[in-house]
């Protein structure tokens, strides 16, 4: 069981309290009704599946109930960092392997 640092609770908490919520930094278009088929496909269906660093959303569903973002290495399963929802994708990762 992983330990995940919740950026709102400001401490590491057991994975059982969390739920993964898919890839991060995919913003819903502000005028979604006007999106082309291709753009909608990219927005809704296409997801990265990297070997290595992934940006993903988690929800501390059985804790503070907040959604937040995490950077995780899919090879080591280690969390590089977590940050609050709405914050920009970090430009630099602390101690990232790649």
């Amino acid at each position: 069981m992983l330990l995940i640092r919740c950026p709102y609770c400001e401490e590491e908490r057991p994975e059982l309290e969390f739920r993964n919520a898919g890839e991060a930094h995919i913003a819903r278009p502000t005028n979604i009704a006007a999106e082309s088929d291709d753009d909608f496909e990219k927005f809704f269906f296409i997801r990265a599946n990297p070997k290595g660093v992934i940006y993903e959303r988690w929800r501390h569903i059985h804790g503070c109930a907040r959604f937040f973002n995490a950077v995780r290495d899919t090879v080591t399963d280690k969390f590089v960092m977590t940050y609050k929802a709405g914050e920009p994708k970090p430009a630099k990762l602390p101690g990232a392997s790649k």
């Binding site: 739920r19 919520a21 913003a27 819903r28 929800r59 569903i61 907040r66 959604f67 929802a85 709405g86």
Partner: peptide
């Protein structure tokens, strides 16, 4: 509830 919270917190905050 999760679906609504998701949109409220991340798309329509």
């Amino acid at each position: 509830m999760n679906h609504m919270e998701d949109y409220l917190q991340t798309e329509f905050p």
